[in-house]
Design a protein around this nucleic acid. Sequence first.
DNA 1: GTCCGATATATCGGCCCGATACATCGGAGC
DNA 2: GCTCCGATGTATCGGGCCGATATATCGGAC
Lengths: 201, 201
Amino acid sequence: MLELAILGLLKEQELHGYELKKRLGDALGPLSSVSFGSLYPALGRLEAAGAVKAVEARDGAGSGVPIPMTGSLGGELAAFRARRAAVRGSRGKKVYGITERGQALFDELLAAESQSPEDDRAFNLKLAFARYLPADARIGLLERRRGVLVARLDRLKAAVRTGRERLDDYSRSLMEHSTEATERDISWLDALIKKERQEER
Amino acid sequence: MLELAILGLLKEQELHGYELKKRLGDALGPLSSVSFGSLYPALGRLEAAGAVKAVEARDGAGSGVPIPMTGSLGGELAAFRARRAAVRGSRGKKVYGITERGQALFDELLAAESQSPEDDRAFNLKLAFARYLPADARIGLLERRRGVLVARLDRLKAAVRTGRERLDDYSRSLMEHSTEATERDISWLDALIKKERQEER
DNA sequence: GTCCGATATATCGGCCCGATACATCGGAGC
DNA sequence: GCTCCGATGTATCGGGCCGATATATCGGAC
């Protein structure tokens, strides 16, 4: 899930971890905002799999001034910094780019069907990258989502009907509100699907 | 989070794991439906902490017929089954009940403030047990939730405004839909808060 | 009588999260 | 010019939850 998001963002632009997190925050729907404790391990996995790799780091425009040293440091520390500076910017930045294997992995993850039928975040994420899908797969994604929501709506209505009397006031209010919200979600999806079919013709 | 849910259900009735899962499915908002891979470890933790304990298992009405044996089994196996049957029903059920420590833990978890400001499920869960909270804490819960949603709404609007041109069609549609949904959530909360204040008078 | 699906408990690997630690850079204030 | 602070930046650790899987029993369909 996170892998898909990372690859999708790197597809458009080379980025380092910190910047990646910021973009994940608002580009990926209203939810989530990934934590560093997920992001860095995910980047590590992707790098180990050869899907991304650290690229030559350049700071903004400068590109020069690799090691701003005061001049009196011992040789060992200087060598260490020089080694690190080769792949990192002056502030220790580590900029990642996507590889061909990464492109392939992205397509695979985006097209993957199930990936948990209930995971709302996965759907939002995939929708954000829907432009990379062929038209039929895009419609398939929307239809599958619609199915999940309809099933959820049925369960909700059944629960409200069943527990008419024995249900808590707060629970009942929550369920009624959730029912309405789910119905609106379905209508929204219907509009998207309709539009998609029109453009298909 | 799961601990709170389990304790809340056991507060009302003694239950075994499988049944617990079913109730967690619909009683806890439209979301979730907990997995066994979370439920059994959570029960284990609670048992280890002395918050719940396995009670004498009785099957429905019968309560008799403890070991339906065919008659020819060796003593060892029979003894093993008898030992197990003491705390489990005929089908290996393990029925849990809440202890006094569990009651205290429930109150503590329910009153806990932060518990991640972004976790939607935690709020729904707490709302489902809001009847166990004093009136002021109940209002506090609702107000805090409102604050989270307002912040989310602001971020959403800012994101839509900022990325007017460069935003994907699908992403934009998702964000606009999310904006409306969040506004409705806030209105719903406002109604709940208003009602709560009226009953407080 | 036997097979099958629902009931029931449990473990395993893996992902993600929150907390935390640790550096460095740029600028505000003195 | 100096110092301190907050933003930038990478990284690890423990723990919770999930999906997949293993195992066993019960009730009924056939």
